[in-house]
């Protein structure tokens, strides 16, 4: 199975004080834990991404506590005020402890 890379759209450059928009998308079934396997009749165990964190220079700028009502292949869009140059880190954690991380640099002038 090809491991999916999260998709992130974040600016590379911004002027100081600008509000920048960040968009993220990751491949995940977001199995609710409420569905039954059609063949065996057994409940399919819950497995969702339960936490998304966006950091800039190590500080949390935005995060989401996620429940199964969030759609498969979760999408998040949010904003940040650009104050200094640095690095974004985007971190997704799922119920099985699988962690996906993506980083991206921002130059503020």
């Amino acid at each position: 199975m090809a491991k999916s890379k999260p998709r992130v759209k974040a600016p590379k450059k911004a002027a100081k004080g600008d509000i920048v928009t960040i968009k993220t998308l990751i491949s995940h079934k977001m199995e609710t834990g409420l569905r039954k396997d059609k063949k065996t009749g057994e409940i399919i165990p819950r497995r969702i991404i339960n936490k998304f964190v966006a950091q800039f220079n190590g500080k949390d700028i935005f995060s989401v506590d996620i429940d199964p009502s969030i759609s498969a292949n979760p999408y998040f869009q949010f904003k940040m005020r650009a104050e200094e140059s640095g690095e974004f880190a985007f971190i997704w954690t799922d119920d099985n402890g699988e962690v996906h991380t993506k980083k991206s640099k921002l130059k503020v002038s």
């Binding site: 509000i19 949390d60 989401v64 199964p68 969030i70 999408y75 998040f76 869009q77 949010f78 904003k79």
Partner: peptide
């Protein structure tokens, strides 16, 4: 957080 700059977010739900 104050670093958010603007309190706006969007997602897709079931």
């Amino acid at each position: 957080s104050p670093l958010s700059g603007v309190a706006e977010a969007s997602t897709r739900m079931r």
